[in-house]
Structures are given as structure tokens and as C-alpha cells.
Design a protein around this nucleic acid. Structure first.
Lengths: 161, 161
DNA sequence: CCGAGTAACTTGACGCTTCAACTAAGTCCG
DNA sequence: CGGACTTAGTTGAAGCGTCAAGTTACTCGG
């Protein structure tokens, strides 16, 4: 905490503020769309989407947590709610009886399938309609550079669409 | 929700996932640093930082809310907690007695001043150490393009450092 | 100048996230 | 084997954000 520390340049400040605006506003915008159209939070959508792509629509709780950058506790609470709504079921794993595996139900699968198009449309509208092709690849490089520091193991493939 | 909708291209998907990783992980990383070093959330830091730069260290609640992209309700709750901790005080505005003005106390000012260097250092480490000068200006342009859709009035200068 | 409408907050309840236990099961090794 | 340690997950309490409702004050047309 020395006084002679390196401050941000003017350019960096502008970039920083613009990035923070996106980071703060984007999740809310996505949540609003998903909540309105499918009664799902962004996080719940992510959970269901990951399951929908997994073999047998099934994943261990711990894998599912890692994939969504979630604590096990958070996932556990959300999974209980999703189970109550009939979107997933959980059962003890036969191999390792500490483990619990979550499976997407048919109703859950239907839910994700119906939610996906609207979600993707919103993503396109918010992000890609604003960007040139060059900017899209620049964005990928920049975001990946930042991400490399935040998530060194790249454990987070994040919700696929 | 038609079936023949426009999906994302492979390039767009990669950019999208990288961006989402940043959007999900960055707030947590910043919160961790601030919480650890100054017992502040990112949002609280933003509130105090905005006040620290305002004339007389004073702003109306509604302005403060807008500047931090917050609902008045959220700000009101946070302001109560900050007031309890002695970082700010609130008092009725003389001109318009519906309004409430928040003022940063000396203790609050000290708190922000002490928190800022560590926060900026973490931002530099997470973001700018990873990027070339060209990438910084590209980032600004891209983030601004996305932001233009999320926050058309650009009401959000976001936490200055 | 007075009543309807609106603006600026605050408050309380509810839902979600986090954190700190806690349970139960697997693993390691002496 | 058996005790110590680790791993997987759940649970309950506490904290924060959101939403709807309430309060007080300003404003503006008649």
C-alpha cells in the first residue's frame, strides 16, 4: 500500500470503466431475459445447459459445480430447487457413494431447449450485432488473456449455447 | 422462438465463452481483494469512491444510485450499513426535503484512500498486465460498443480509481 | 390554494449466495 | 485391520439484493 504506486493511465482508465460497465450490466440483462421468458436465472440456465450436453444428461455435482464456477454449496441449493421443480433428479452414485449425480429430466430438457433460442438471440443482440468480425476475434483474445489470470486452469467452459 | 433461428458461429461462441468467463470471475476476484484488505465489497467501494470525488464529498442518494447503476433501494440498504460503520452520514437536503444527501466522513475518506492502491494494483495485475497497448484501446472500443446497448444513456461512469 | 399526480427515499419480506458446521464415505499407511 | 486424513455433498444461519408497499414532500393545473 505504498504511496508511490503505479496508477492507471488515462487510456487504461477509460478501458477499465467501459469493461466494468459491461461486467456489471451484462449479467442483469441476461437474467432479465431468461427470467422473463423461461423463469430461469442465468446460473440455473447454465446448470441445465451443461447437463443437456453431458453424456446421459448426467454429471456429478462436483463436476457440475466446477463447470459453472460455483461452490458446491451454491449448486446444492440450486439443485434442490431445480429438483423440486422437476427439471433434474439427483441420486447417489454407485461407484462412489459419497458422490451424487444429477440428471436432466425430460421436462428439464424441454425447458432448456425452449429457453435456448431466446437466450442466444439476446446474446447476439447485445454483443455480436455491435461488433465487426475483427472485433469478435480481438474480443476473444483479450477476454482469454484476462481469463488466463482469473481461471488459470480454464476449468470453466461456461454455458455453451 | 422459431427453430430456424440464427445460431452463433464457432468464432462467436469462443468469444462469448471467454467473455462470460471474465464477466463471471472478475467481480468475485475484485470482491475478494477488497474484502480481504479493506472489508469492503466492490459495490461499497464504488459508493465511497464516487463520494470521495464529489464536491464536498457529498451526493444525493439518487445521483449516487445512478452513478453506481444501483436501485435506490439497494443503495439505501447499503448506505444504512455504511452509516452504521461510520463511513458516511446522511441528512435531509435543505432545498428539497424529500431528498437525502450522503456525505463521506473523514473515516470514510481514509478508508477509501487506503483501499484504493491495493484495488488498483489488483486491477492492473488482472487486466492490464495481460494486454498490449493496442489491446487496451481495442478493449475500450469493444466494451463501449457492448455497453452502448446495455446502458444507452451512459449514465454509469463507474468507479473511478 | 387544493387535490391529483409524481418524485425521493425507506422499509420489510422473500429469495439467493456464502460461510461454517456437519455427515458420510473413501483412502492411506503402519 | 484401524485410526487419521481427505473428499463429496448437504444443511442452517446470516447477509445482501430485489420487489412491492408505504411515507413524505414537491409540483402543477384549475
Amino acid at each position: 500500500m505504498s504511496e508511490d504506486q503505479k496508477w492507471l493511465t488515462v487510456d487504461e482508465q477509460r478501458a477499465w470503466r467501459a469493461l466494468m460497465a459491461v461486467v456489471v450490466l451484462l449479467p442483469g440483462a441476461l437474467d432479465t431475459q431468461l427470467q422473463h421468458d423461461s423463469h430461469l436465472s442465468n446460473f440455473e440456465y447454465g446448470v441445465l445447459a451443461m447437463l443437456s450436453e453431458a453424456p446421459d444428461r448426467t454429471l456429478r455435482m462436483s463436476q457440475l459445480a466446477t463447470l459453472n464456477d460455483s461452490s458446491l454449496s451454491r449448486l446444492s441449493h440450486v439443485a434442490r430447487r431445480l429438483e423440486e421443480r422437476g427439471s433434474i433428479v439427483r441420486q447417489q452414485c454407485a461407484d462412489d457413494r459419497r458422490a451424487n449425480i444429477a440428471t436432466l429430466t425430460d421436462a428439464g430438457m424441454t425447458l432448456v431447449r425452449e429457453a435456448a433460442p431466446g437466450h442466444v438471440a439476446r446474446v447476439r443482440e447485445l454483443i455480436f450485432d455491435q461488433l465487426s468480425g475483427d472485433q469478435v476475434s480481438e474480443l476473444e483474445q483479450i477476454a482469454d488473456a484476462i481469463r488466463s489470470n482469473l481461471d488459470p486452469e480454464k476449468r470453466m467452459p461456461t454455458y455453451v449455447n
